[in-house]
């Protein structure tokens, strides 16, 4: 049994492959998460513009990419873009698909955070001469982010998990590499190793999230 699922020799043989996958997963996360946060912030800031010319397209954008399954979006980009004369490769497709999908989620979280800050805060700032943008940056956003920190972290967890979708378009991230190793060794051990790595990587985030959530609950009492 142990020989099948946790074979030490196979771990040793597969390790370099799995490790390169891990690095790619980390790299992918480090690209996709900041990109999504940035895109989300822009979306949330645009959402505070009252003009219907901004509001409606924005809402359509966010709704569309939240309703669209990220895997379908990814495959569509990967398979469809070459026909539009754009050969981007798997990595770029994952980055774009996740930016569109997760940016919309982050955007909604930031928006909820911004709306949780009382209007009087902005008025106090503006009455001292701060511009709209300064009031947003110095007064509203710091409070907004603090108010939705658990949601931001929780979404980040989802994003990191979703990077495994990259395996579908041959991005050599952790899951993809583990499957390569599995097919080379005819043994499921590399998949088990990948699963353990995913868990070890995400578990501290999950713990942190629990603590944040408990603190938020305690703060509300």
């Amino acid at each position: 049994m142990i020989q099948t699922f946790f074979n030490v020799e196979i771990i040793a043989a597969a390790w370099p492959i799995v490790l390169s996958g891990l690095l790619n997963t980390v790299l992918l996360s480090l690209i996709v998460v900041p990109l999504g946060l940035f895109g989300g912030l822009i979306l949330a800031l645009l959402a505070s513009v009252k003009s219907p010319w901004v509001r409606w397209p924005l809402m359509a954008w966010v709704d569309f990419f939240r309703a669209f399954p990220p895997l379908v979006l990814l495959i569509l980009l990967f398979a469809g873009l070459p026909f539009a004369g754009l050969e981007l490769g798997g990595f770029a497709c994952v980055a774009i698909a996740f930016f569109l999908n997760t940016g919309s989620y982050y955007g909604e979280i930031f928006r909820a955070g911004i709306e949780s800050v009382p209007q009087g805060q902005v008025e106090a700032g503006r009455s001292t001469g701060l511009s709209r943008l300064q009031a947003m940056g110095y007064i509203v956003l710091p409070q907004a982010v603090r108010n939705v920190l658990p949601d931001l972290l929780s979404n980040t967890l989802e994003v990191v998990k979703l990077t495994s979708l990259g395996s579908v378009v041959a991005v050599p991230e952790l899951l993809y590499q583990a499957r390569q190793a599995q097919s080379l060794t005819y043994n499921p051990t590399p998949i088990v190793v990948a699963a353990v790595i995913y868990f070890l990587m995400l578990w501290p985030l999950v713990r942190l999230l629990s603590r944040l959530e408990n603190r938020a609950l305690a703060g509300r009492r």
């Binding site: 009382p118 009087g120 805060q121 008025e123 106090a124 700032g125 503006r126 009455s127 001292t128 001469g129 007064i139 409070q143």
Partner: peptide
């Protein structure tokens, strides 16, 4: 607005 101070009922401190 710098020349016009305003104090609110609910303080509105940051």
């Amino acid at each position: 607005r710098q020349r016009i101070g305003m104090v609110f009922q609910s303080f509105n401190l940051y």
